[in-house]
Design a protein around this nucleic acid. Sequence first.
DNA 1: TAGATTGTTAATCGATTAACAATC
DNA 2: TAGATTGTTAATCGATTAACAATC
Lengths: 207, 207
Amino acid sequence: MDSKNISQAVIGRLPRYYRYLGDLKDEGVERISSSELSELMRVTASQIRQDFNNFGGFGQQGYGYNVEYLYNEIGNILGLNEAHHLIIVGAGNLGRALTNYSNYENRGFIFEGIFDADKALIGRKIGDLTVLPMEDLEDFIISRNIDIVVIAIPKTGAVSVADRAVKCGIKAIWNFAHTDLNVPEDVVVENVHLSDSLMKLSYMLTQ
Amino acid sequence: MDSKNISQAVIGRLPRYYRYLGDLKDEGVERISSSELSELMRVTASQIRQDFNNFGGFGQQGYGYNVEYLYNEIGNILGLNEAHHLIIVGAGNLGRALTNYSNYENRGFIFEGIFDADKALIGRKIGDLTVLPMEDLEDFIISRNIDIVVIAIPKTGAVSVADRAVKCGIKAIWNFAHTDLNVPEDVVVENVHLSDSLMKLSYMLTQ
DNA sequence: TAGATTGTTAATCGATTAACAATC
DNA sequence: TAGATTGTTAATCGATTAACAATC
């Protein structure tokens, strides 16, 4: 819960810890040592202990870590105890796929609306949501107190949508468009560049 | 084109260089210096030069880099000049979204088939493809010489699909399931764990 | 208490940045 | 030739691993 500067490397590993600890918890495992977890996750035990100690000690000498406690603590560090209000811009296949994330795994993420520029899609039901027109974006963000905007449209429209959302005071963008977004310092951007990922795969194949 | 060990950090940056160079090329820019590119991409010029020099010199003292030449070279390093044959397992929204990647940006990636366990989906058309039943997986991979399997199903089925595909000799897996896959050393796995990405976003929001 | 395992310091390794000689 | 900018070496910084004293 400390706010000293945690490196990106550490943060990037937290969700994976969270995933493994969740699985262990579901299997009814009560305690685990850094060396057991190390073997399971194929990382060094040193790294595990160092990572956890960035946030203060979660373990106990001679015993190890309590799985459920550690799971919850990491969840808190990740902010999963807080509710986040999202909208999706883009009601194509990708946007629709992402609406599923509200259900099971990530209960803290509440998808409040989905938008599209295509007149043919407006009014269509996608799960509990109804596709809204782009003109409603600003009003909706403000009235519903939206934190996070998911950009699931091609790069041509992405920059302008990001700008509009930023002007309304959103705090974060989950960006699936193949472009980088320039936003003010206090707005967080998490990019998912699928084509970059596919290129990395391609690179590894040529080796 | 060198095969000395290139670090993951460098490889991870190549697609981004490729993206920026592609844009510059499209804008008709002929040459660029590391310091100009540095400003554009917000990384250090030193890093750019170091990165490129992992693969031999692409530039010229006093001039900089030729945009088109550099773009093509990085494309070759990434293996984009070679054809890759893919199938998608999972014809849900995510699987459907991914079929689009064959079209525009990544011409080297040829999506040959899409599979699903859901009887209701089998036979349905998705773009040029027809949804095939899971029983056909092995025959299809072998007869069509498939390199890459895209796993776009929930984690419950993912491990067994990966195993079946590996047995047929596929070389790589693009994994969207929320689980790690254990595969032989010579099979490449590129994970896209969307929920991990969302958790990272959540973490950054709490800071 | 003895054994186990953490928390934490120190050592190593690798990646990034700075500097500059080579050269177009 | 002079100016510009790379390629590359050296310095710095940060992340990972190893080691061990603290302690449950």
